[in-house]
Design a protein around this nucleic acid. Structure first.
Lengths: 227, 227
DNA sequence: TTGAAACATGAGTCAACATTCAAGTTTGGC
DNA sequence: GCCAAACTTGAATGTTGACTCATGTTTCAA
């Protein structure tokens, strides 16, 4: 496994030296200088797009942040959209990696949900404007956006199915539940990470964990009574 | 006072017949001809923005759909962004109104949530591309976007607090819950209305309702036994 | 009937980039 | 050291589309 590197395209590393192409961008650097320039461009683009949004952002802005020239940009990417896509793909990898790390020791699924929500909030806080990039992808590169969330949903679905098999959660439609849970996280991220920082992630995880675990219905204790 | 209205933010209405000004756009029509033209422009803009997105959309596209000239457009709106904002505000009113109508007879909050989710899915299906406009507002007019969702969240919070007071739901942090529920609806709308039509809204409402009501934890029935 | 306020028109202006390209500079294998 | 491939450069090109404005038409109150 690769150590992911910042945001940049931490591809599969090594491999057969041969062509490390990914269809996203057109060209791959062969020398060290080239790889450094590519990295600088990606980091600069993350900043530029994050701060100004896709349409306000300019290639000139990216290259000047990167300390490169416009011509150089087009050596590494075919277009403005191409580098944007590269960024989205990267964010997906980064996010999943971060959450996976924070969740891997959870004793069961419901605990994992709590940790996962908290981890997600933390992550978004640490990458606010990069997170904007994902959201804007919906309008700039819809397929990349769908891919991003669909793969999250798929992971959720798997986890839920597994947990149901173990009897950790009730049975039900895991697809619908997956999207519901995903939506929760995303909106909590928007509210408590992008728009405000005032609540500690663990608390949000706890509140949501409780909601997910027990729902909103009043408790019905064994001897209970209700109007 | 208005009962219920889960998602609906009971407007303020009032106002005489006089000038329905909103600071959003610059000019208001005085004659009948003017009002008709304004309406045509708004409808055309909804189409144009919905189909092509804010940045791809052009004023020329709007005016040609409306059967008006470019100059006319600038009689009614100060800029491309101004008409976009007007559209977002309109959508907010429309959405809240629709859901309020569907939810008003719910016997209690948990039933209302079920109906609300289903109504929201229905609404988004019926206004797919208009819904895009809301989402894109995040990048074109962030304040309008925040306003849109914040007023939804506020309505949720009120309803939850009220329900808690009546003992219909457990106590807890209603702000966090509100955003969690909002996120659910939005993402289910994305998945089951914008991206696909294959599941009937009531079923989604039922599944989510169950999740919201009981959570995911395995049932712990009083005399306990499980198949 | 009339004239002034409302409204409509659309060619032309103008600034903002994305992208290209021909010409230079650096790297690294031999 | 040599030189081909890799890399860098930024002025020039071309497109696009929001917005202006001078002129013409319609409405309606008096």
């Amino acid at each position: 496994m690769s150590q992911h590197s910042s945001l940049a395209g931490g591809e599969d590393e090594q491999s057969a030296t041969a062509d490390e192409r990914d269809p996203a961008n057109g060209k791959a650097p062969k020398t060290d200088r080239g790889r450094k320039t590519l990295r600088k461009l990606l980091d600069a683009a993350a900043q530029e797009f994050g701060e100004r949004g896709f349409h306000e952002a300019s290639i000139a802005g990216v290259t000047s942040r990167a300390g490169a020239s416009i011509g150089t940009f087009y050596v590494y990417f075919d277009s403005k959209e191409a580098i944007f896509r590269a960024l989205v793909a990267d964010m997906g990898r980064l996010t999943r990696g971060w959450i996976a790390g924070r969740v891997k020791d959870a004793p069961d699924r419901l605990a994992a949900e709590r940790l996962g929500v908290a981890a997600f909030i933390e992550f978004v806080r640490a990458h606010k404007d990069l997170y904007r990039i994902i959201m804007e992808a919906q309008f700039v590169a819809e397929d990349a956006y769908r891919e991003y969330y669909t793969s999250f949903a798929a992971a959720y679905r798997r986890n839920l199915a597994e947990a149901a098999a173990k009897g950790e959660i009730r049975d039900g439609d895991h697809e619908e539940r997956a999207w519901a849970l995903l939506g929760m996280s995303v909106f909590l991220g928007l509210r408590y990470a992008v728009w405000s920082d005032d609540i500690v992630p663990a608390e949000i995880g706890a509140a949501v964990g409780d909601l997910i675990e027990n729902g909103l219905a009043p408790e019905k204790p064994p001897g209970g009574s209700k109007p």
